[in-house]
């Protein structure tokens, strides 16, 4: 088995798409660093300018806030808190008067890197098996190694390892370089441990994305067919939104079982989402209900997805004719 996994890993790293994917991810990491540079390490001039703008905004807010809230209440705002929330106080961060914290930027970095790596590894993994069907080389391979389950597992392990490596590079390079920028500017690495753990979970999700790409392409016997699945889901999701936002809608129970919410919950150790319930009969007013998807829920969700994908993929591959 180790021999087979080794052969599959050799093929994976020799593929042009794998190399291109790795370069794209590294380029994205570099671009992210450029993009956040002015946020985490603003120059003294930018900070001074920001401070000036912030003080100006603060003064304007103090002058107008009470009036704004009063107008809000007169125009139908239901509570003082609600109207207060419509006119929040400016913060120094809004005006780049102070550097963004490592916690804030690192969290965005982990999420961005995770989503990019997940998409990339899904694509690479789907193409990894799709190319074997397209060229017919899978049949050739099976004349050398006829044990179907062994072949399925070796390819799957190679894809998971390759995806995890890609995810680790994407996430930890992002975090590491961000930390370096923050530290170089003399700012503390706030909640670094928390972000590292989140990065670890992101790597797991990237590996899962690779596995799903592999299994979907294996089932569809085509790279493009596998890639169409998440795109089609994206389309279905836009339609589903209309049926899941109302707390009393027939599909109101669905959001905790949708992948995007579970991705967020797994990365951030829990996620919240909102549903709405009409207060007035004509629907002109409503209340917002905040709901929570726990980390444990998302863990079980992804574990189930992996187990089902592996079982279905292995079952189909074991029995299917390969021509």
């Amino acid at each position: 088995m180790i021999r087979l996994v080794g052969a599959e890993l050799t093929r994976l790293r020799s593929r042009r798409l794998s190399i291109v994917a790795a370069l794209v991810v590294l380029a994205a990491v570099a671009l992210f660093q450029i993009a956040i540079h002015s946020e985490v390490a603003p120059s003294a001039a930018v900070q001074a300018q920001g401070q000036q703008a912030y003080e100006q905004a603060q003064k304007e807010w103090q002058d107008s806030h009470a009036t704004n809230v009063a107008e809000c209440l007169q125009e139908g705002g239901s509570t003082q808190e609600e109207c207060e929330s419509y006119d929040p106080a400016p913060t120094p961060q809004n005006y780049s008067a102070v550097p963004e914290s490592f916690d804030e930027v690192g969290s965005i970095g982990v999420t961005t890197a995770a989503y990019l790596a997940m998409f990339t590894s899904f694509l690479v993994a789907a193409s990894f098996i799709g190319a074997e069907y397209a060229t017919g080389s899978l049949a050739n391979w099976l004349t050398f190694v006829p044990q179907r389950l062994k072949v399925f597992v070796s390819k799957g392990v190679a894809v998971v390892l390759g995806s995890a490596l890609l995810g680790a590079v994407a996430v930890f390079a992002t975090l590491g370089l961000t930390a370096a920028q923050v530290a170089a500017h003399g700012e503390p690495l706030v909640r670094a441990g928390h972000l590292a753990a989140s990065g670890g979970r992101a790597v797991v999700l990237v590996a899962v994305a690779g596995l799903l790409g592999y299994v979907l392409a294996l089932l569809a016997r085509h790279t493009v067919a596998a890639i169409v699945v998440p795109l089609a889901y994206g389309l279905v999701r836009t339609v589903l939104v209309g049926f899941t936002q109302d707390a009393d809608a027939p599909l109101a129970w669905l959001p905790p079982y949708l992948p995007e919410l579970n991705l967020q919950a797994f990365l951030d150790r829990g996620a919240t989402y909102s549903q709405y319930r009409s207060v007035l009969a004509d629907g002109s007013d409503y209340t917002e209900i905040e709901k929570h998807v726990s980390f444990a829920h998302s863990g079980v969700y992804w574990l189930t997805v992996v187990v089902v994908a592996v079982l279905v993929g292995a079952g189909v591959f074991k029995r299917r004719d390969v021509t």
């Binding site: 021999r3 087979l4 080794g6 052969a7 050799t10 093929r11 020799s14 593929r15 042009r16 190319a131 060229t135 017919g136 080389s137 049949a139 050739n140 391979w141 004349t143 050398f144 190694v145």
Partner: peptide, 28 residues
Amino acid sequence: VGAIVEQPKFFPAFTARRNLELLAAAIG
């Protein structure tokens, strides 16, 4: 048993040597 079923089926972007190296690795 060695077999060629229909047309030779290898990875077109790989060199001949790399294609055979992969098969050799699979069977040790």
